[in-house]
Design a protein around this nucleic acid. Structure first.
Lengths: 250, 250
DNA sequence: GAACTGTATACTGTAGGCAGTCGACGACAG
DNA sequence: CTGTCGTCGACTGCCTACAGTATACAGTTC
């Protein structure tokens, strides 16, 4: 009796299942990659990471495989895992594909013209703008991301949204600095986009999104070619690095 | 002296590394899924697959994770792995995204206009046509696949090609029957496409590819809606199925 | 000094084991 | 008969161990 009442009441949320270790390790390693602690090309020894994170090799191995699936890490059989080292060309291609996917998403979102979704877009836009004016760059960048993700969601094509999410995640560290620079211009474009979506003008929505994302792409390229720092030079294939023999376990 | 000369000669190919077990297991399970031996929604117990394939659970576990990354398998922590059960809607979305990616690939291929690539396309087209005339459906279907893959390669955008490959892999079991039905019409469209690519006519190449892949999509939908077999009804979430107690180990 | 060989061991891929969770099924009460 | 509870064991997540491979380094030869 008591149990059936609880099940029906909807008042008691289910106890959330604790995150598996592999998920936690995934997030931990990803954070290390994104914040630069683990630099591109670096060899990732399972046992080192396991020791660092206080787990066994197994969840590390699984996390590395997940990271590989999302393009953050390259797995080479027999050699192990290496932080993915993107080239300028690859970044360019990723940004081009992102543009393609988000342009189509915007077009479909305008076709679908979902009133609730448009309201949510406007809310995100307002949040981004006020964060910008408060000089809160971090919130502004996050709102930017969320807005783009919502557009792909409003496309109504889940496969498209998933691919866009996958690509978006990988370009994160390319387009964030650009978004910072563009500031207000970026948000004005978002507003125009939302207008077009609301109006159901698929051609216009697509055109705005194409221009918007294409601008990010060319700005990134400008940035990279004006600051040649050799970080993207073709390097010799990284190998797994055995810890030097004389290194004492510290 | 001897060693440095051997490294430079390029005459001796390197011994290819044997595939890891996880890769072999991945392919084996994928084949079982594609040929229907492992039906959508089915629970995949690591230990059963390990016994079936004669390996330990570990490479099975890793293969399942790879399969999850490509959308063939759903992993639920605590419950295990289940063959992904696509809905008609999802198939539709996949085919739509495939159309988007391949249309853009064709456009870029026409922009790039690579003579060697065009020659390879024509060769594949000839192979497909002659296989069709010899009633060799299998070779015809394979050539069809290869031709599409080559177009994405000729786009020059590796990220795009990879995503297209990922999507193409997943739609394989949707569009193959359609390709069978369309036969000659399909190959005529391929010829027109190649002409457009060779001529560097990006607009025309894109249009032909869009129509071609869109045709596959609508043919698939026609087929599914004309044969409602309930296979795509929303089902209760599959759970991990403990082997019944009375089942004797056979 | 450069090139090569041999050795030691760090590291990867895989196998096997353990503890906790989940689901089938039997027992029992109403 | 239906519903509930408890038991059992299949199964998952993670740990540990082993075998083979890759790399660092020392020693030797030219």
């Amino acid at each position: 009796m008591v149990r059936s009442e609880l099940a029906n009441s909807g008042a008691a949320p289910k106890i959330p299942r604790p995150a598996t270790l592999r998920e936690s390790v995934f997030e931990a390693i990803l954070e290390l990659i994104i914040n630069g602690s683990l630099s591109p090309g670096r060899h990732l020894a399972e046992s080192d990471l396991a020791e660092l994170l206080g787990v066994s090799r197994q969840p590390v191995r699984e996390a590395l495989q997940m990271l590989n699936g999302e393009g953050w890490v390259d797995l080479r059989p027999g050699h192990g895992a290496f932080v993915h080292a993107p080239t300028v060309q690859e970044a360019d291609q990723l940004l081009a594909v992102r543009s393609l996917l988000e342009t189509e998403s915007a077009r479909l979102a305008a076709l679908n013209r979902e009133a609730d979704g448009v309201a949510r877009l406007r809310e995100l836009c307002a949040r981004g703008l006020s964060a910008l004016e408060a000089d809160d760059i971090e919130t502004s960048v996050a709102a930017n991301s969320d807005l783009h993700a919502l557009v792909t969601e409003l496309s109504g094509n889940k496969v498209l949204a998933e691919l866009a999410s996958q690509v978006s995640r990988r370009v994160r560290w390319y387009h964030t600095p650009v978004a910072r620079q563009r500031g207000r211009a970026s948000w004005e474009e978002h507003e125009l986009l939302i207008d077009a979506i609301e109006a159901g003008d698929e051609t216009r929505a697509a055109q705005i999104m194409r221009d918007h994302t294409e601008h990010t792409r060319s700005s990134y390229l400008d940035q990279r070619t004006s600051q040649p720092d050799g970080a993207d030079e073709p390097e010799a294939p990284a190998t797994r690095r055995r810890r030097p023999r004389s290194l004492s376990p510290s």
